[in-house]
Simulated assay, not measured.
Amino acid sequence: MGEENAEAAEPRTLRGARATAARRRAREDEIIRATRTLFDTVGVRDAQIEDIAQAVGINRAIIYRHFSGKEELFAVTLIGYLDEIAEVMRAADDESAPTPQRLTSVAEAFLDRGHEYPAFVDCALDLLSKSAEELFESVSEGAMIRLGRGMLGPLGALAHVLEDGNKTGEFHVDDPFMLANMLYTQSLGALQFARNQLLVSEGAPGVPAVRRVPWEAVKRHTIRAVHAMAVADDVDDRP
């Protein structure tokens, strides 16, 4: 009874504002889900605003009422991938295992998930191709904060293992989050390399040779690189 009285006493304008905000959030979620579906079916490059609007059953102009532009919509859609990747990374991390084994497990979880969803790689690389100035011009502050929180998921899962390795003396990482950011970027490059499956080498002096490289080989070398960077001493501490 008390809650009913409180609701009745609430100003009508406030109730209306809350209802409007709820409808807006629901429409934004609907647009993001449609964008994600389009990413996973036709790819990021072929995803068009017109197709997203048609999937939701709205005019494309309505999308621009919710998002500042295509770049912001794609950035917000990336958050869903990041949340899923963070979840599988945390699930793969057995804190009772030695930290080198934990590092392998979380790195494999990231790489396998990225290999499974190439649209994630395209979307993430598209954002990385832009400068900070370009991002802040095309993506609103609120969306950037949401994106940053999304990125903290996988970055934090990796940095947590690096921090624990520092405590046991098995890793020597001066700035775990700096290395986590670098490994995130490098792993995206490795995932793109795995999609191309083309390895350029020297067949004869000065003569390039191109051959196919399997996914498992790319993953194995990427994880080796991750470990090498984690166990290396900080160069600033060397004589």
Rank of each mutant, 00 (worst) to 15 (best):
L14V: 15
D126M: 02
H115G: 15
F177Y: 13
R45E: 11
I79H: 03
R24L: 08
S138V: 07
A97C: 01
P214V: 02
R146C: 10
A217W: 11
T104L: 12
L103C: 06
R211S: 14
M229F: 09
V210L: 13
M182L: 11
R238H: 00
C123E: 12
A119T: 07
I63K: 05
D93T: 09
M151A: 05
V226T: 09
E71L: 15
A194T: 07
D93Y: 12
Y117V: 06
L135S: 04
T222C: 13
L183P: 03
E84I: 01
G150V: 10
G43R: 05
M178Q: 08
A119I: 07
T37K: 12
E84D: 11
E50L: 13
P176L: 00
S105F: 13
V44G: 09
R36F: 11
I63P: 08
F74C: 03
S105R: 15
S187E: 06
G153K: 02
Q54M: 13
A26T: 14
Q48S: 05
E3T: 10
M151R: 04
L179D: 03
L188S: 05
L191G: 00
E108C: 08
I63F: 08
A86K: 03
S96R: 08
D94I: 00
E72F: 06
P208L: 07
V226A: 04
E163K: 15
D29Y: 08
A225T: 07
P100I: 06
C123N: 15
I31D: 03
S105K: 14
N196H: 10
E163V: 14
S105Y: 12
D237Y: 07
F171H: 06
G148A: 04
L188A: 07
L179K: 05
G156C: 04
F39N: 04
R33N: 12
R113Q: 07
V121C: 00
G80I: 10
Q186M: 12
T37S: 15
I79N: 04
G80P: 09
F110Q: 10
W215G: 13
D234F: 01
I62K: 13
Q101H: 11
Q186F: 14
E28P: 03
E170R: 02
T13M: 07
L82R: 04
R238T: 06
